[in-house]
Write a protein that binds this DNA or RNA. Structure first.
Length: 333
DNA sequence: CCAAGGACGCATCAACCCCA
DNA sequence: TGGGGTTGATGCGTCCTTGG
């Protein structure tokens, strides 16, 4: 739905003020008046021009392949609906031969940070912002959770103290069950910036236990001691105790990157985005020889996706496999 | 294997808040 | 009261599962 509404931006003139429901009606009426007849789409030349236009962004430059795909998807759905309503006789898109832009499906190995780089990045996070307001210090644990436990950002943002087992020594555990995807105030049921829903691709109420390495447990314990938790028990929160917006931690991350990385690495894709910490975590585990089934379980995705997505990052696995086979054969020598 | 579909993330600028 | 610190809104981009 959000995607569909987004595409109205191509039709509706950008409003100077917030769009109230009555304005939507006005906009739809305007679109009706300003549009060409639907049947014009049956002319392949017109259809081709429409497809061509969907390749561009509002500023006129070519959009990313995934974005092009989404724009086209929305059009295909609209056309299907028109056919269903008897407003079009045939499928105008089928008449136009059109190649969909190729998209990259694998993780770029250059984004993966090694443990030393990850540690210095996390350390740098604590130096971001003033010490008193602690813009960075408050978020060290958030990023640590993405790196040491492979959490997705929206999972890390939602972690609460009651869901964690944080022993003084050794491994801990967190039970993930809700996430806080950022949707925008206009689109949530509650009218707040974030929605509350179940884990990605799973029914509401489903949970995923995630083991927490000792280094992370220590980090989170310290965070709770220093900053406490939000009213609802969340470990990480903004200055006013609210849910962290992606723009908030993204800014901190970029400042930390500038502090931690030498100029030569700063311009590379190395850990460019917070999500790359998760990529780093998963590829590190796989290369350490952890069973892919176990990695997939901890990460919360399927083995198939895991292995195809991280194919380019798996340079150490063949060696490990060879060693294991050799050891097994030696045993029976 | 690949396209579809939906959910989520990131960049950037505007707006707001807080404190000296 | 002004300016730095911080969060919010929005358009574009990515991740990942499903189903043919």
């Amino acid at each position: 739905m959000r995607q569909a509404l987004r595409n109205w931006a191509f039709v509706v003139p950008r409003p100077e003020q917030r769009t109230a429901p009555s304005d939507v009606r006005l906009a739809l009426r305007w679109a009706e008046r300003a549009s060409r007849p639907l049947t014009d789409l049956m002319d392949p030349a017109v259809m081709r021009a429409v497809l061509q236009a969907l390749r561009l962004k509002q500023d006129g430059t070519v959009a990313a392949a995934e974005t092009q795909r989404h724009q086209r998807m929305t059009l295909v759905n609209a056309v299907r609906y028109a056919i269903e309503q008897g407003m079009l006789r045939g499928d105008p898109i089928a008449n136009v031969s059109w190649r969909i832009a190729k998209t990259v499906k694998q993780v770029d190995p250059r984004v993966v940070a090694n443990p030393a780089q990850a540690r210095s990045l996390l350390c740098a996070v604590s130096y971001v912002g003033s010490h008193r307001r602690a813009r960075g210090r408050r978020l060290v644990g958030l990023f640590a959770g993405m790196y040491y436990a492979g959490l997705r950002p929206e999972e890390a943002v939602a972690v609460t103290l009651p869901d964690c087992v944080l022993p003084a020594e050794g491994w801990g555990r967190a039970i993930l069950h809700i996430t806080r995807p950022q949707a925008g105030k206009k689109w949530t049921d509650t009218g707040r910036l974030h929605d509350e829903c179940g884990l990605k691709g799973r029914p509401l109420g489903d949970t995923r236990p995630v083991p927490l390495p000792p280094e992370l447990v220590a980090q989170w314990r310290e965070s709770v001691l220093t900053f406490g938790t939000a009213d609802d028990g969340r470990l990480f929160f903004n200055e006013r105790g609210g849910i962290l917006a992606s723009s908030t931690y993204d800014r901190v991350w970029h400042e930390a990157r500038e502090l931690a990385l030498p100029p030569g690495l700063l311009s590379t894709p190395l850990a460019a985005r917070p999500y790359d910490l998760r990529h780093s975590a998963l590829s590190t585990w796989l290369n350490a020889g952890v069973d892919p089934t176990e990695v997939a379980e901890r990460a919360g995705n399927s083995v198939e996706v895991l292995m195809t997505k991280y194919a380019k990052c798996l340079y150490g696995r063949a060696t490990i496999a060879n060693q294991r086979i050799e050891a097994l054969l030696d045993e029976y020598d």
